[in-house]
Design a binder for these strands. Sequence first.
DNA 1: GGCCGGTGAATGAGCGCTCAGTATCCGAGC
DNA 2: GCTCGGATACTGAGCGCTCATTCACCGGCC
Lengths: 223, 223
Amino acid sequence: MAGSAADDPAGTDAESARFWGLERSEQARRLLTSGVRCFAAGGFHATTTRDITSAVGLSPGGLYVHFASKEQLLFEIIRTGHVRSLDTLRGAETTPDAQARLRELVRRFVVWHADHHVVGRVSQYELGALSPQHHEEILELRRFTTTVFHDAVRQGIDERAFADVDVHRVVRAILSLGVDLVRWYRPGGADSPQQLGDFYADLTLRMVTSATEPSPPPGGDTA
Amino acid sequence: MAGSAADDPAGTDAESARFWGLERSEQARRLLTSGVRCFAAGGFHATTTRDITSAVGLSPGGLYVHFASKEQLLFEIIRTGHVRSLDTLRGAETTPDAQARLRELVRRFVVWHADHHVVGRVSQYELGALSPQHHEEILELRRFTTTVFHDAVRQGIDERAFADVDVHRVVRAILSLGVDLVRWYRPGGADSPQQLGDFYADLTLRMVTSATEPSPPPGGDTA
DNA sequence: GGCCGGTGAATGAGCGCTCAGTATCCGAGC
DNA sequence: GCTCGGATACTGAGCGCTCATTCACCGGCC
């Protein structure tokens, strides 16, 4: 339970430096961590610059020594969150066996989102507060993530390791299960991040190893 | 494709009245619909009373003729969203066959969230802006929803129709897939609400008809 | 001495919400 | 038919406040 898991993006100074990047000053990293907590708790617009700065012992103006604006701070948080999540997937893409590859990708994606559910909440739910340019930049990063899973499923099908499933549907379901973790996951619950990763990885393999097309014609009533 | 589906909570006056309740005045319903659109687009705190009222041709003060506060308007939206979603499940709970029962529950849940993804987005993401009392009232409604799915899975296991799966995990996955729809679903995409309902219902049945415990002891590395 | 990191008061924009006033409608009284 | 009283819906100016951001200033460290 110790080690990789951290309720916080920065449990220790070393973890904080690794997560936010070594090139940033300690105070900047503290502000990012404070921002994560505040934005996750109340959302971007409900968070004041005083909330963020007072938590690290600075006055409101102190924020502008390290960041150009509140929005810039949010952007740095969301960008770093997406980049770190993507980093986690790298290396698993080249696993030779298609099943082991997809299993490992899903496991890593799920474990990351459970471990970093606070950063994840900001990354997923505060996108709308970004400027159009920043927003677009994040969408670009997301396309990479989607592509990683898309390719893993596609390759498995081409290699005849998976059934001829609907790639988009399966990828959507994988991303949904992983992303939605940040909404409900709390450490100390019934399942550890690893257990959730295993469960969802099993589920994913079950999605791709048998047909998903046999939907009978629907009755039509939904009222 | 016509009929039950509506991008908007209130495509026509008749639909609006049915969704928000016949006892409400037409202007109140218009404000609720405008609130949904504004809150979904920018979030509660980024939405001004002027945004909401100007969309229905009223001045800022006009909101307070119909609602006590902006928060009260949000609460009415979220409460109605949860109640309507629950209403949709009712009736499917008593289907005699366990598999058909669970399938129908998932289908209805998914179709509702796709059809009402705008209201759903507000209901799911703006909970934090509610007063503590209102928040608690909504959590109470959510417990009902969880219980419906919990019981359906539990009963299936007891009747030996399902494998001895982890009920909480399965219910979490069902709710995640359904709820996360409101984040990404847009009408006009590859799948209709009904197709998504069928796909996720199939997926659910696959979760409960074979074991989910065989997770091997994890290696420990997630970096 | 100059630079870095920080202060805290000031600024001006914009917020939710109030309220005195107004337009419109409707039924009662004659 | 007409007037009147009162209820209802709404206006729009504006109050009191908070916000993000700026800036003149300053202590300590290379």
